[in-house]
Design a protein around this nucleic acid. Structure first.
Length: 421
RNA sequence: GUGAGCGUAGCUCAGUUGGUUAGAGCACCUGGUUGUGGUCCAGGGGGUCGGGGGUUCAAAUCCCCUCGCUCACCCCA
């Protein structure tokens, strides 16, 4: 039987696994540095958990099955609903603010593309119970911390930040679009970078915007600085709030990573405040991070209303970007030490040295098949060993081995007790 | 769901308008004279050219079908 991996899934060979672990280590470290603790939930959740949040069409875009009891279950496509469910279940007992992070394996039934797979990992950081923009800034700083730790710079990536309330006020109060049309206009604006200017105009026209409304909208979409809004009185409040957020980001020392971008809308309906995305500067890849404030989600899953914000970051796009920039883990060494025998077939002395090194917590290999010293040296090099301890016939008497430094080629005699110290 | 491109060795690919036993680089294995790897030299294994059908004296090459992969659109939590 010829087997191959399922479409949109990946096999993690040693180098791939090394990259994945390297990434996870940085995600965890950045989370913990900011005082977040790790949680996790089941990969299987009731299908309804996602249908309630996103509508019945969502079932087309996720993996789901009926279990033997007739329950409809889904492989989680994201972690946020699980998080909301977990918080709602213990809401009264959890001290706020809640600072949780999670690394989850997620599944989405979509056509795979560059940076988009059917099985992937996602890092989630959520800060729940704070309704001020302090929480948003804290989350953004965690994201930047991780990016920085991976070796990326402000020349490589930027955080593009906007605010749903600002955009909503502009579209409704300044441009004059009816409130019930706002979601549709947001959806069109989200495509701003993808379609030509006249196509966008046609879409807005179809949505029912008059010429003058469109012109006003186009004018504000060209704004690149928050101060551009100073002349528009009706958006004073949300614009000021966003300015405070940027001031705070400057205090965090990450102002050069962040930029106001009115075009950041996010497709999802549940965002209620600041929204942001991390992109590579060249826009070569799709978004690396996406986040924002979602103050209504807890209530939507049946909990007490609680303000919340957070972000998610997938491993696929990040992996592509790191590869393009030559970043990632150094080549893996399977073993630090390799114990070789100069006397073919005599393994007891070799094993004695091996046990000694392993007890000292040194990654140690030896040639299980024995063979010529030449062969053993080659295996040592293949394993990436830094040192080879050669056990000779004199070992039984002297308790000393010949230690070869594989980088320099230098050799010296070392007593067993000093080996691996 | 729509559209485009691509499937030749483990990997990356070459293969002229169809023409003998299908190639290269890397990787792998063996050897370079009785303890020593990475370099170098020599040799070697490995391919029903994604699968099926057709055209032809002759198909990796042309045609049809099929499977798979990739990219873009839709969607994007």
């Amino acid at each position: 039987m010829k087997t191959q991996s399922v479409r949109g899934t990946r096999d993690f060979y040693p180098n791939d696994m090394a990259l994945r672990n390297w990434l996870f280590e940085r995600w965890r470290a950045a989370s913990r540095r900011a005082g977040f603790v790790e949680v996790d939930g089941p990969v299987l959740e009731p299908l309804d958990l996602y249908i309630e949040k996103s509508g019945p069409e969502i079932a087309e875009q996720l993996y789901w099955l009926e279990d033997k009891g007739g329950r409809r279950l889904a492989l989680r496509p994201e972690f946020t609903p699980t998080l909301a469910r977990m918080i709602a279940a213990r809401q009264a007992a959890l001290p706020t603010p809640i600072r949780w992070f999670n690394i989850s394996r997620c599944f989405r039934y979509e056509r795979a593309q560059k940076g988009r797979l059917r099985e992937f990992y996602q890092w989630n950081v959520d800060l729940i119970g704070l309704d001020e923009f302090y929480a948003d800034a804290e989350c953004i700083s965690v994201a930047v911390d991780a990016i920085q730790d991976m070796g990326l710079t402000p020349d490589d990536v930027e955080v593009r930040i906007s605010d749903r309330r600002l955009l909503g006020a502009l579209v409704h109060k300044y441009v004059g679009v009816a409130e019930k049309l706002i979601p549709r206009v947001f959806a069109i604006l989200d495509k701003r970078d993808k379609v030509a200017t006249d196509t966008l105009a046609a879409m807005l026209n179809d949505a029912g915007l008059k010429n003058e409304e469109r012109q006003r909208l186009e004018r504000i979409l060209a704004f690149e600085n928050l101060s551009d809004f100073d002349s528009i009185g009706v958006v004073r409040e949300p614009a000021d709030t966003l300015k405070h957020l940027f001031d705070l980001l400057a205090d965090y020392g990450i102002a050069d990573w962040c930029r106001f971008d009115i075009g950041v809308v996010r497709g999802l309906a549940y965002y209620t405040g600041p929204v942001w995305e991390v992109y590579d500067r060249k826009s070569e890849f799709r978004a690396i991070f996406g986040g924002g404030r979602y103050d209504r989600l807890l209530a939507d899953v049946g909990g007490r209303p609680m303000p919340a914000c957070g972000f998610a970051c997938g491993d696929a796009v990040l992996g592509l970007l790191l590869k393009a920039r030559g970043l990632g883990p150094a080549a893996q060494r399977a073993a630090q030490y390799f114990v070789a025998s100069a006397q073919e077939g005599k393994r007891s002395d070799v094993l004695l040295v091996v046990r000694h090194l392993r007890r000292r917590n040194r990654a140690t290999q030896f040639d299980l098949k024995g063979g010529s010293l030449k062969r053993q040296m080659k295996k040592a090099a293949d394993a990436g060993a830094q040192f080879v301890a050669i056990v000779t016939a004199e070992f039984a008497e002297s308790r000393r081995v010949t230690l070869r430094d594989m980088d320099s080629g230098e050799q010296r005699d070392v007593a067993l007790e000093e080996l691996g110290a």
